[in-house]
Write a protein that binds this DNA or RNA. Sequence first.
DNA 1: TTGAAAGCGCTAACAG
DNA 2: CTGTTAGCGCTTTCAA
Lengths: 347, 347
Amino acid sequence: MKGIRALARHLDISIGTVSRALNGKPDVNPETRARVMEAARALGYTPNQSGRSLRQGVTNTIGFMIEMSPDANASGDDFFMGVFEGVQTVLNRHRLDLVVFPCPAEENPVDYLSRLVGRGMVDAMIISATRRRDDRIDFLEKTQLPFIALGRSESGPDMRWIDLDFEGVAHSSVARLVAKGHRRIALAIPDGDINLGHVFHDAYRAALSQHGIAYNPALLFRVARVLECGDDLVTALLALPELPSAILLSSEVMSLSLYRKLQERGIRPGRDIAVIGFRDNPRTSFLTPSLTCHSISLSDLGQTLAETLLAGIPAFADLYPGRDRNLIWPMALVQGESDDFDIVPER
Amino acid sequence: MKGIRALARHLDISIGTVSRALNGKPDVNPETRARVMEAARALGYTPNQSGRSLRQGVTNTIGFMIEMSPDANASGDDFFMGVFEGVQTVLNRHRLDLVVFPCPAEENPVDYLSRLVGRGMVDAMIISATRRRDDRIDFLEKTQLPFIALGRSESGPDMRWIDLDFEGVAHSSVARLVAKGHRRIALAIPDGDINLGHVFHDAYRAALSQHGIAYNPALLFRVARVLECGDDLVTALLALPELPSAILLSSEVMSLSLYRKLQERGIRPGRDIAVIGFRDNPRTSFLTPSLTCHSISLSDLGQTLAETLLAGIPAFADLYPGRDRNLIWPMALVQGESDDFDIVPER
DNA sequence: TTGAAAGCGCTAACAG
DNA sequence: CTGTTAGCGCTTTCAA
């Protein structure tokens, strides 16, 4: 004998009353409720989730799908941990649980996702590492399961999403460099179909154009593995007739190998070439010269992500009214030394 | 009408037969089975997990609890991502799913764990970031839920665990340094109750003693935040009457801030002080001078972790016979430049 | 080889 | 305020 039935028998009352007492229903004698709560605590009773889910049709669980391919994971180590923290903060308010589903690198993300959703393991999903075109989004829209994407995509024009402010980062970076006299500004983005590369690329072009600088495709570098990009990047840079005076990175972790490889070739970041990283990441904060980048509160991002998701779930929607369906998350420039020099115009 | 009932009605056969067909039971007409499989595929049917779990008493889900405090999590996402990948490889063989439970930094880990387990969300658990004394272990042993720890603990003398080879790392590091003439070898470990600090400390003492070097408590440094330890560490080093000639790190990410702060004070790692990191981490592989550390296959570790866990679950135990209940995971020294100099003995 | 029916643990509707 | 009961979706007897 286990579960609520054992608890009811132990208290010598019906399981219905026990259930109502435990779930805070109003029509329970306060004294009875106290006895039930106490016994539940003493016996360590926790309602079985399968039983609840089956009966109620909801799991009280929100899934967060992450991918384990190094490619999809350029955001840098502490990124997801920080976001999870914020998401939990909000979900806890509603007694919802966050569970993370790590999609193996070799498995098809849509198959993985559809298995999870089909099994009814979650009431809603958060997906990340959005592709420019992303079949997961089409799938989720078909199932009608509430979801939100951390990252925009062409596949989901009407979906809820929050994305980092690549436009703002590109504009503030370019503006800063141009003010220092730079004209030859390169860009490094991840190869492949992760959308942030495309978005950042577009934003970079727009920013250049705003400052009257012609877009030069030779200054665009697509790197295969973000962590080990330095070698390829420096080789490509040196193959140019003239070294760019600055380079923008779409992920700050690129800076680790880039700094090293530049220095091996006698090119001093912050002196011979300006480098602007992306996010303010503790793991890159000890580079010399310090990396100019953009700060963000991961926890706040996670909270807003969760709230925007809940705004799309009928049972919670009225608690988060008037919330935008999508949002560009602002980032603030953090001045470092990696771009702190002026170009002396040639005459 | 949904689920298996809808499928059965659509095929005009009983739900029992559909269930048997789908689950590969032998007593089903091959033709019937084919029809069922085809219809399931066409209608996108996936059995509801709550229904299955309730009926079968198992969830086919293995939980992996991680903690989001930066302290417990210094190695960065890539450590766990690598381990997850290996764990999944093994679990997939048995159609088991891995789900990750991120415990918020401000929540009591035991409460968090007991909620999960009480709700019956998993058939077994993997825990990490073990403390020297760890209440989660006492709890799990009480519940009888199969589990394994990634990290040893005094709380679980009989539990299954796999831990990194801190002893081997300490011994090979000290031996290497002693051979180069070092005698004043410092150690940096995380402050707090995470067990690896204690284990590494003990191993370090044993290794010193093996080489006839007296343990000097003044050369032990406990750092609060692993990522930002450089400042405190260098300050403490400089407060000593004489600079140690070498320092061992219990986490390679310490090297990031340490290198920077040493260099700010004009102390050259690999020249004025030898530094030996812990794990071979892509994020530290671009330091100059390159960090001597120890390599490990995270995926293999994850696979063995999963197999050792399964060996403790009755339903799978016979598939993994003769497996040790616990294991020290070996790591191989990777020679770098950060300790590549000899001490000239004074006369 | 198939159908019918019980029951996993729980909550909600209803009767008392 | 409490007890009884149906039924969530599924698998597994048991009978046919």
